[in-house]
Amino acid sequence: MTAALIAGAAAMILLVLARLRPSLPVVMPRYTGWHGDYSDVASWVAWVLGDTTEPGYAHSALAGALMLFGGYLAHWAFRAKKRWMGFPVTSGTGLFGWAVGSAALGLVLSNAAWGWTIAVSGMWQPTFVPFASVPPAVVLVYGGRCSVALTGAVFGAALSTPIALIAVNFGCRPLGLPSVVGATTGMAISALLAFVLCRHLPWMRVPTVVVPRCSAGSPHHFVDAGRQGPRWLSRRILADFTDAQFIGNEFASAGLLAGTVISYLLNPEMAGNVGDLLPELLTSQVLAAALSVALWHRQWATYGWYPTFIPVVSIAPATVLAFDGSVQAVVTGAALGALVGPPFAAAVARRLPPDFHPFIGNVVSMAASTAMIVTALSVVPGFG
């Protein structure tokens, strides 16, 4: 019932926002994002900051700034052992600064090295992938050291971005698949390569950090995982919006969502490439989070963590965009994503070597589940 109330309330609020937006003036009407012109420093910085929110389809500089501030606040509260800290960031490892620092450096290197693809193609490109893949994952396996953070950042820009570019431009676009399939495929392949290479680098010592793997004996870093009620479920639904960035905290997610909505009300183009479909997209994401957490809450109690965020950042929004924000796309994408995505990711994560971060299971699930569900729905009457 809690999940239904949250999803219903969110749908009503977002419906009001959709009706309100046409009556508001457009702020910064010339804002169209960055187009690969490195001389336009301000737009480049805004693009890079917006890339931090791209896993949630926002791509808003304001949302990125508020998300990072919320994440830092939660990290400080965790270190200070404040009761209001929420779900501990970065799997409760205390490595928020190192993980985000490596991710941010990888993101800057990615945009500096591959931003020209935006100018050449004239289209969006997955320059964001290092921020939510290899750099923070390497830190969360090998620990917080400069050599580890730099290695992760370089691998992110040198492996994750080019593989994602190939997958998106030569796989997804010709086949008509959602771009998230190519981006997450790039994350998965590059992570496998990166962790194999880490085994042979003399400065990468034996892994020192234990992260949740959805298996017996998995560390229970998260607070109140076994004391689940309406309050816990509400907090978990909110926190799922930033789990893809390895943050997974209510304050960070509140900043992300607030910045996204504000950007949309000021100018839909400031809230990412989804434009006027943002209300439908957010509705599907909230519904997916509510269904996923409600459906798999016992796994949270058993393992201390479970990838309930999978449909929030992949299957649900991809289905909405693939079928122009129809009601059936909003509901079906969220429901199928919640049913298929999390257990698929957990199954893969359990089978990975101990020195491979289990996020690989998450992105494999995102790529495969999104491709299968969107393709299957395209032949169903009312969708295609």
Results as ranks from 00 to 15, higher is better:
residue 333 G to D: 05
residue 104 A to I: 05
residue 212 P to Q: 04
residue 234 S to N: 10
residue 201 L to C: 04
residue 203 W to L: 10
residue 51 D to P: 00
residue 95 L to C: 08
residue 139 V to E: 05
residue 102 S to E: 04
residue 101 G to A: 04
residue 269 E to Q: 15
residue 102 S to H: 05
residue 213 R to A: 06
residue 209 V to N: 08
residue 25 P to Y: 00
residue 295 L to F: 07
residue 29 P to K: 05
residue 236 R to P: 00
residue 348 V to T: 00
residue 381 P to L: 10
residue 33 G to Y: 03
residue 176 G to M: 08
residue 282 L to Y: 07
residue 161 T to C: 01
residue 114 W to I: 00
residue 166 I to N: 01
residue 310 I to H: 12
residue 341 G to I: 01
residue 105 L to N: 08
residue 339 L to E: 06
residue 77 A to L: 10
residue 50 G to Y: 02
residue 168 V to Y: 02
residue 214 C to G: 07
residue 37 D to I: 10
residue 288 A to Q: 11
residue 258 A to V: 14
residue 218 S to G: 06
residue 207 P to N: 11
residue 169 N to I: 02
residue 154 V to A: 03
residue 381 P to V: 08
residue 174 P to K: 11
residue 306 Y to F: 14
residue 381 P to E: 14
residue 159 L to V: 00
residue 321 L to M: 13
residue 195 F to K: 01
residue 185 T to M: 12
residue 285 Q to I: 09
residue 192 L to I: 05
residue 101 G to Y: 03
residue 82 K to E: 13
residue 60 S to C: 06
residue 262 I to Y: 06
residue 347 A to M: 15
residue 103 A to L: 02
residue 297 H to I: 08
residue 177 L to V: 09
residue 249 N to I: 07
residue 3 A to F: 05
residue 185 T to E: 03
residue 286 V to A: 12
residue 129 V to M: 04
residue 88 P to Y: 10
residue 260 T to H: 14
residue 337 G to E: 04
residue 218 S to V: 00
residue 38 Y to G: 04
residue 152 G to T: 00
residue 101 G to Q: 03
residue 347 A to T: 02
residue 183 A to K: 08
residue 262 I to W: 08
residue 9 A to E: 07
residue 338 A to T: 02
residue 378 S to N: 12
residue 149 A to S: 06
residue 348 V to N: 08
residue 120 V to E: 13
residue 372 M to W: 06
residue 12 M to I: 13
residue 292 S to L: 11
residue 315 I to K: 02
residue 29 P to V: 00
residue 282 L to M: 11
residue 175 L to M: 10
residue 383 F to I: 04
residue 244 A to M: 13
residue 222 F to H: 12
residue 47 W to V: 00
residue 325 G to N: 13
residue 349 A to P: 07
residue 120 V to P: 00
residue 307 P to M: 04
residue 1 M to R: 15
residue 263 S to M: 09
residue 309 F to L: 15
residue 123 M to D: 15
residue 299 Q to L: 11
residue 267 N to H: 10
residue 139 V to P: 09
residue 36 G to K: 07
residue 75 H to F: 14
residue 322 A to N: 05
residue 118 I to E: 07
residue 35 H to F: 03
residue 303 Y to D: 07
residue 218 S to D: 10
residue 16 V to M: 14
residue 187 M to E: 13
residue 13 I to E: 01
residue 58 A to E: 11
residue 53 T to H: 04
residue 314 S to Q: 11
residue 53 T to S: 07
residue 14 L to C: 03
residue 131 F to E: 05
residue 184 T to P: 00
residue 172 C to T: 12
residue 337 G to C: 02
residue 373 I to Q: 06
residue 34 W to P: 01
residue 257 L to S: 06
residue 35 H to N: 09
residue 121 S to P: 01
residue 151 T to N: 01
residue 318 A to N: 06
residue 350 R to Q: 14
residue 365 S to M: 06
residue 344 F to R: 06
residue 36 G to C: 01
residue 158 A to V: 01
residue 56 G to Q: 12
residue 250 E to S: 10
residue 335 A to C: 03
residue 260 T to R: 13
residue 253 S to D: 11
residue 324 D to M: 09
residue 34 W to E: 01
residue 184 T to Y: 00
residue 257 L to W: 09
residue 109 L to V: 00
residue 264 Y to E: 07
residue 233 L to C: 12
residue 203 W to M: 07
residue 15 L to K: 15
residue 330 V to M: 14
residue 82 K to L: 12
